[in-house]
Design a protein around this nucleic acid. Structure first.
Lengths: 203, 203
DNA sequence: TCGTGATGTAAGTAAGTACTTGCAATTATG
DNA sequence: CATAATTGCAAGTACTTACTTACATCACGA
């Protein structure tokens, strides 16, 4: 049957299904028959919208590419006391990663053998994240509530802890293996980070 | 031709080839013909040694399973000054991960759809790492050169930074995208960590 | 010299996968 | 009402993959 929905609805459903199954089973492990089934369409319909499976992957990664959340986070923490600003930053960043879990997972799995383009997109994504943390720390320094330290290294450290938390809990399923108190983890590392960066140049 | 080498040599070569290609292409993406070619054997030989492709994966993950390096690291840092102990700990831990890069990559990719056994093995591996860091920090506390802080959270923080460094530089290929001064990264995060944990209970 | 163990070559089976073609059905639109 | 757009169904092609069978070859030990 036809015209029960705009063509674009069908494309969106196929893209969402592909995102999900490429993330769960990998590119090679996700067959087009399964993707079509997950999208609720016939396999032949998938090939009416996308020239090939390779093209489908390309379009999935373009369609769901990251949009920088860092400017928004910068605005969110602007009026908060320092420690609360950092805990909020960490929490919202982890939330952002959780929303993009499938994209990140596909990127990590397929980037190696994908065209150089995906590789570059992923590392631009990481650059954006690190740059965003640098901007946040600079703002906090200017308010006088962060010490004088190497912002690049501090950003890398902060990002590393958050991303690894996300990686283990969400991508590696550690939350299904052993429960973790997310608030405690964030609170403690933020405190160590604050103390560690506040007293940096005093010697 | 035959008997040019012991049977066990052939098995080892197949297991090494499988480790490499499962890591590079994923389980579904690495076909048995390619694995055999990489091992320098005929495909039929692969199936003389391993009942099936699934069994091959199981044996790869058993054969190359992690051996805890944490007791050795504990011994290594025992006689070092605190800051040097922590930088050495971080460096040696990253080296250990780099050596097991293929195993970690396969685990991260295949654990989701693999039997629960792989899932448990991987998280036991993470437990071992975290426990090892806790033991190291406790030793340093007992020597009086680390502050009084939540060892579990500190271990998670320390591990997170190192593992994420490894993940990005080695697994995600960031070292091929932008060069990173590993010594600077380690030195700076250890200093922030030291300052952060030394002044924890003083308030 | 012969038997054994281990592997290679060649050819194959069964199933799965990416993708295509032809025709039918339904709905929206002019 | 006719047409166009979109999708489903069915059947298919070409190729790939996991795995098997039969026979040949070679090294080694008794």
């Amino acid at each position: 049957m036809a015209r029960t929905q705009p063509e674009s609805d069908t494309r969106e459903r196929i893209l969402c299904a592909a995102l999900k199954l490429f993330a769960e089973m990998g590119y090679a492990g996700a067959c087009t028959k399964e993707i079509a089934r997950e999208a609720g369409v016939a396999e032949v319909t998938l090939f009416r919208h996308f020239v090939s499976k390779d093209k489908l992957l390309e379009e999935v990664m373009s369609r769901f590419t990251f949009v920088s959340v860092m400017p928004q986070l910068l605005a969110e923490i602007a009026a908060l006391p320092c420690e609360e600003a950092l805990t909020t930053l960490a929490g919202r960043f982890i939330d952002y990663l959780v929303l993009r879990k499938d994209w990140v997972r596909i990127m990590q799995a397929e980037m190696q053998r994908a065209p150089a383009k995906l590789f570059t997109v992923y590392h631009a994504f990481l650059d954006d994240l690190l740059g965003g943390f640098v901007a946040c720390f600079r703002q906090l320094q200017q308010r006088g509530c962060l010490g004088d330290f190497d912002l690049e290294q501090g950003a890398r450290m902060f990002h590393g802890i958050c991303f690894n938390y996300f990686n283990q809990e969400e991508l590696q399923g550690r939350k299904n293996y052993k429960s973790t108190d997310r608030e405690l983890v964030i609170r403690e590392f933020v405190r160590i980070f604050l103390y560690g960066t506040c007293s940096r140049r005093s010697e």
